[in-house]
């Protein structure tokens, strides 16, 4: 009978199956079994071929996925780098001290005051006071949503340090809600000159400036008079 297995032939074919399976196991996925003879073993051979096909497909898929994941990981790492970089940039950017008028500096504070930021803020302000010789500095905290004891403490320290360098600080932009909160907290800010708005602070600074310069002129005038004598 044609369909019956020839034992010798079957042994060879089984050995061939073993060969193919071991190459597949070793990673060679191009090997396939020949299925041109129709007999009882053919079904097994075809099933093995399908299995190898499926395996090849799955492996390709997982390789593709691995590459995609690696790609994403790289992107995330790059983004992380950018974020760290931007945070550092922000720290610098967020405390710009500007000279707005003769003798007057402004430091607008926006956002949250953590310890790192207040440190940089204070350094920038003190540096600028020394550089410009300004004697009035306005700290505008309109953009600070929460003033707790730590923030208040930082502000007090900054004002004290500026005073040591000969500059008077005015704090502006305290909202009614924050004013009430500060009072309830029990913090005493009466040693600091405060104004409700930046405009008020500017006006105050100008007045002080006028007095200062008029006084100076007056003094020079007096000195001259004395010289004349």
């Amino acid at each position: 009978m044609e369909n019956n297995l020839d034992f010798k032939n079957a042994k060879e074919r089984i050995e061939h199956i073993e060969d193919v399976l071991s190459s597949v196991a070793a990673g060679d996925l191009d090997k396939r079994l020949q299925t041109d003879i129709e007999d009882d073993l053919t079904g097994i051979e075809e099933a093995i071929n399908i299995l190898i096909e499926d395996l090849t497909y799955e492996l390709k898929q997982s390789k593709k996925m691995k590459e995609e994941l690696e790609d994403k990981l790289n992107k995330i790492q790059e983004q992380q780098k950018t974020i760290v970089q931007q945070q550092e940039d922000l720290l610098e950017l967020s405390s710009p001290v500007t000279k707005v008028w003769d003798n007057v500096l402004i430091l607008p504070v926006i956002g949250t005051l953590d310890s790192q930021r207040t440190q940089i803020m204070m350094e920038n302000l003190l540096q600028k006071i020394v550089e410009t010789g300004c004697t009035i500095a306005i700290l505008d905290i309109t953009g600070v949503p929460t003033v707790d004891t730590q923030v208040a403490n930082h502000l007090l320290k900054t004002v004290t340090a500026a005073r040591l360098l000969g500059a008077d600080c005015i704090i502006s932009g305290i909202s009614p809600a924050i004013a009430q909160t500060i009072v309830h907290l029990g913090i005493d800010l009466s040693s600091i000159k405060t104004k409700a708005t930046l405009q008020d602070a500017m006006l105050f600074a100008m007045k002080k400036n006028n007095q200062l310069f008029e006084g100076k002129i007056h003094l020079e005038h007096k000195e001259q008079e004395e010289d004349d004598k």
Binding site: T146, A177, T181
Partner: peptide
Amino acid sequence: GIVEQTRITTAISELLR
């Protein structure tokens, strides 16, 4: 209201610090 919001936010800020 805004005052109450500021109060609770500040209080929680103290505790978290």
